[in-house]
Design a binder for these strands. Structure first.
Lengths: 222, 222
DNA sequence: CCTGTTCTGTATCGAACGCTACAGATATGG
DNA sequence: CCATATCTGTAGCGTTCGATACAGAACAGG
């Protein structure tokens, strides 16, 4: 066995006839449109342009392929998250996040299916691993938002009664909801209108968001 | 052929050995947990306590069973919608709607699966009819909210720049998003915290929600 | 009791599922 | 040119899928 200058083993034998990223992109659209269980092996291999043995040699199983697709999907979305997290203040973070989700989840005239792969490819499934994998990836985005808002709050750039975890959860909720709307055919304009309403909930120093406890007491008096 | 006093045919032959509503309830939890495609016939018949021929005689096909389950699900949720639509003003409608969704979609310790059947049982599917059926049922709730807000606006109980369709769409979006969160294990408290933030977006006569056009112009100046 | 009708349980059906055995093809190392 | 290693295409594995054929059971009407 020989090693190249990166320290990895030099591959002998017949070289792979396909580009991993290309076939993952093609598999992605199938999982996106049909869901994990609705995407059959024959449809996947057909779209990827390879035969089952090549698929299994490269990804191990249908679930392995799906996980690889999700990883690739996540890497693409990371560009959006990086831009979002670089916004100057928490309100700009919220706006750019929701507008970004509205832009990519609305129907893009065939470039990619509507909605979000992490939402619609497998909320319920005969194999419980799939919903869990998706939930973990969604939770990761929410955590990134929460940590950003926690830093903002420590720096005094969020009202004292604002809850970073709840705000991050709220944004994730609206984003996931928009993905559901998008998968049912919502247009980019409709989604952006929703974003404007959603952002009206964002706390400011002059009009802090009502805390859950205070709102509950108001409700009790009513 | 004879007819009873309701004008329907009197049934002869061996009577059905099961209660339709009972077996639909049992099938509902299977579809809820596994999704449309993840719910196999053997698992469905097992949970329903009947054999395939009985299922097919009563519901025609797996899709027929699913549609019957969805109808029953909808009938149950209608009680919530009736209560919501009877609320005194649009803000109360919004609050009761979101709190109702938070209550039933959070994990109820086994009484029913978390989330909403209309969201998680088939956003993507090999059979495109399923996502469409679900989307139509979700759209029906949104329409009921919109029509209520349109009446409120005509009666001067909503600000002039408030858009009833967008407000209804916003509530639906938050509700669907909460269902996604619930399916991933969100607690009732987390969902209710989200509701409080979401309601801060609701327009009032003293602080009307920014219109999408105005917000866009503000963004352009920034 | 007999006929007609509808439902039930057993025991499958053909098709599609996810997956793989195997032989031939194509690379590297010596 | 040969040995070794990896990948590719064909062809088909065993299983499970949604859906049924069929015979017998359980009712109503006469």
């Amino acid at each position: 066995m020989r090693y190249n200058n990166q320290g990895s083993a030099v591959k002998t034998g017949r070289p792979r006839s396909f580009c991993t990223d290309t076939v993952l992109d093609r598999a992605m659209t199938v999982f996106w449109r049909k869901g994990y269980e609705g995407a059959s092996l024959s449809e996947l291999t057909g779209a990827m342009g390879i035969n089952p043995p090549s698929l299994y040699a490269a990804f191990g199983s249908k679930e392995g392929l799906f996980r690889a697709v999700i990883e690739r999907y996540d890497a693409r979305r990371q560009a959006l998250m990086d831009r979002v997290l670089a916004a100057p203040d928490s309100r700009a973070v919220a706006r750019q996040f929701l507008e970004g989700v509205a832009d990519f989840s609305a129907d893009t005239e065939g470039r990619s299916p509507p909605g979000c792969l992490l939402v619609q490819s497998g909320l319920s499934c005969s194999d419980a691993d799939i919903p869990q994998v998706l939930a973990e990836h969604r939770a990761e985005k929410e955590r990134a938002l929460r940590e950003r808002f926690e830093r903002d709050k420590k720096a005094g750039r969020l009202p004292k009664n604002a809850n970073p975890a709840t705000l991050a959860s709220y944004l994730t909720t609206v984003a996931n909801g928009m993905c559901v709307q998008a998968s049912a055919g919502a247009t980019a304009k409709q989604l952006h209108d929703i974003v404007e309403v959603a952002l009206a909930a964002w706390p400011t120093s002059t009009r802090p968001v009502r805390s859950a406890a205070r709102a509950a007491s108001i409700r009790r008096r009513a």
